[in-house]
Lab assay of single mutants.
Amino acid sequence: MDVFMKGLSKAKEGVVAAAEKTKQGVAEAAGKTKEGVLYVGSKTKEGVVHGVATVAEKTKEQVTNVGGAVVTGVTAVAQKTVEGAGSIAAATGFVKKDQLGKNEEGAPQEGILEDMPVDPDNEAYEMPSEEGYQDYEPEA
């Protein structure tokens, strides 16, 4: 019985440690998101679009440190934060509304985080759909 109880105690310690790591990862992701939003706020009209992409990228980098179902929630929060940063930029006159959601080359930025393969159960990952990809044929 002692062996059984000791095993359960060790398992509990492992769960607590994993929860603490997840909590730490979420806190880091939130900190990076805040950094990115402050970065966007300090940019001029020309830099705002690039700044919004930076927020998304920093958040995406930190999301990889967070495991399990938390990833889905962090990704949703990050996307809403990026959308909010863009709205703030438009409201303050840093950028025109028609410039939001495009990178410096004018290509749409939507789907940055949505296409990231995420499995809350950590069982399997699927690649994003290939609808947006084109076949590449090298020139002879």
Rank of each mutant, 00 (worst) to 15 (best):
E61Y: 02
V71Q: 04
G47C: 09
E46W: 05
K58M: 08
V40L: 09
E110S: 12
T81V: 11
A140H: 13
T75R: 12
G101P: 07
V37P: 00
P108L: 13
K32T: 03
H50P: 02
P120A: 10
A140P: 13
G93T: 04
I88W: 11
G93K: 05
K80I: 09
Q79G: 04
T44W: 15
P138W: 06
L38N: 03
S129W: 01
K58D: 01
M5C: 13
S42Y: 12
E123G: 06
N122G: 04
F4E: 00
V66L: 12
V95Q: 04
G101L: 15
A89H: 05
T92K: 09
V82L: 13
A27M: 08
T22H: 01
E130K: 06
A29P: 00
D115H: 09
V37T: 03
N103Q: 13
V49R: 10
A78Y: 12
V77I: 08
E35F: 09
A27W: 10
D98W: 12
G73K: 07
V49W: 11
T59R: 01
T22F: 15
S9Q: 09
T33A: 15
I88M: 09
L113Q: 13
G132C: 05
G93N: 04
T44M: 14
E104A: 02
A76I: 07
Q99Y: 15
T54F: 04
E130Y: 13
T44L: 15
V77M: 12
E105D: 14
V52P: 01
P117H: 07
A89I: 14
V55C: 08
K60L: 15
A78F: 10
L8S: 00
M1Q: 15
V71S: 05
G31C: 15
K34R: 01
V63Q: 01
G132E: 14
A19S: 03
P117G: 11
N103D: 08
A69P: 02
V95D: 09
G41A: 12
V74D: 15
S42C: 06
G86Y: 10
T81M: 10
G67M: 12
K34Y: 13
E46Q: 15
E28L: 11
K12L: 15
G47A: 13
H50Q: 03
G14M: 14
G14Y: 15
V70Q: 04
M116C: 06
T33Q: 00
K97S: 14
D135L: 10
T64C: 08
A140E: 04
G25Q: 08
V49Q: 10
G68L: 10
E137N: 10
L100E: 09
K6N: 04
P117V: 08
E110K: 07
E137Q: 03
Q79S: 04
D98I: 14
S129Q: 10
K96S: 12
A85F: 13
D115T: 05
V82A: 05
E28H: 06
E28M: 06
D115M: 07
L8F: 13
E46N: 15
N65Q: 09
A89S: 05
A90C: 15
G93W: 05
G106S: 06
G31K: 13
G73L: 14
S9N: 07
I88K: 02
M5P: 15
V16F: 11
F4T: 01
E20C: 07
Q109W: 07
G101K: 09
G67Y: 09
E110C: 10
F94K: 05
G68C: 01
E123W: 10
V66W: 14
S87W: 13
Q62I: 08
E13Q: 12
A76P: 03
K10L: 06
N122T: 08
A85V: 15
V66Y: 09
E35L: 05
K102H: 03
G106H: 06
E57W: 12
K97M: 14
E131M: 06
V48Q: 00
G31V: 01
V70T: 03
Y133R: 12
V48I: 11
P138T: 00
K23R: 10
E35Y: 01
E13L: 12
A27Q: 12
D121M: 05
K12N: 00
A76S: 09
E137L: 03
Q134Y: 07
V70F: 01
E57L: 05
Y133T: 09
A85G: 02
L113S: 07
T22R: 01
S87H: 10
T33Y: 15
S87F: 11
E114S: 09
M5Y: 15
K43A: 08
V118W: 12
V74T: 05
K102I: 02
V52W: 13
A78E: 04
D98Y: 12
M127E: 11
Q99L: 07
T44V: 05
E110V: 11
G67E: 03
Q79R: 05
M5L: 15
G73F: 10
T54L: 14
V71P: 02
P117Y: 05
G31Y: 11
A91M: 06
T64K: 10
G67V: 12
M127F: 13
I112F: 08
V48D: 00
M5R: 03
V49N: 05
K60Q: 04
A56M: 13
P120I: 01
A56F: 14
V15T: 00
M127W: 04
N65G: 04
Q62V: 14
P117M: 05
E105S: 11
A18G: 07
A78N: 02
D121W: 02
E130H: 04
E130P: 09
K10A: 05
E131H: 07
K21D: 00
V40A: 05
E137G: 05
I88C: 03
A30S: 04
G101Q: 13
T22P: 00
E46D: 06
Q99I: 13
T44S: 01
E139R: 06
G86H: 15
Q134N: 04
K32L: 08
A56I: 07
G73H: 10
P117S: 04
Y133C: 05
V3G: 15
E104L: 09
A76K: 04
A78Q: 01
D119I: 14
K45M: 14
V37Y: 13
A29T: 09
A17D: 02
K23D: 00
S87T: 04
K21R: 11
Q99V: 12
V3P: 15
G47L: 12
V95N: 06
T22L: 15
V77Q: 02
T54I: 07
V15I: 03
E83L: 14
K34A: 08
K6R: 14
L100S: 11
T75A: 10
A69V: 12
L100V: 11
G31R: 13
T72C: 13
G36F: 14
V77N: 02
T22V: 14
A30Q: 01
E105R: 13
K80Y: 06
M1W: 15
A90F: 12
G132T: 11
D135P: 08
E105H: 15
E105K: 04
M127Y: 09
K23L: 13
A107M: 06
T92C: 10
G25I: 12
S42P: 01
A56K: 06
T64V: 09
A78R: 03
P108C: 09
Q109V: 04
P138A: 05
V70E: 02
G14I: 06
E83Q: 03
A18K: 01
F4S: 00
E139Q: 08
G47N: 08
S42H: 14
G51C: 12
A90Y: 05
M1F: 15
D135F: 06
G68H: 05
Y125R: 09
N122C: 07
M1N: 15
K23Y: 14
A11W: 09
V71W: 06
H50C: 06
K96H: 15
E57V: 06
D121E: 09
E126R: 08
L38R: 03
A19Y: 10
E105Y: 14
F4N: 00
E20K: 11
V52L: 13
G51T: 13
D2C: 00
K96L: 10
G47Y: 14
N122M: 05
G51N: 05
K12M: 14
I112Q: 04
K12S: 03
D98H: 14
P117E: 04
E114V: 09
A91Q: 11
T92I: 15
A53V: 09
A27D: 02
N122V: 09
L113D: 13
G93C: 14
T72G: 04
V95A: 15
K96D: 11
V15Y: 10
S129K: 02
E126N: 08
D135G: 08
P120S: 08
V16C: 12
G25P: 01
S42G: 04
A89K: 09
A27V: 13
Q79N: 06
E61T: 06
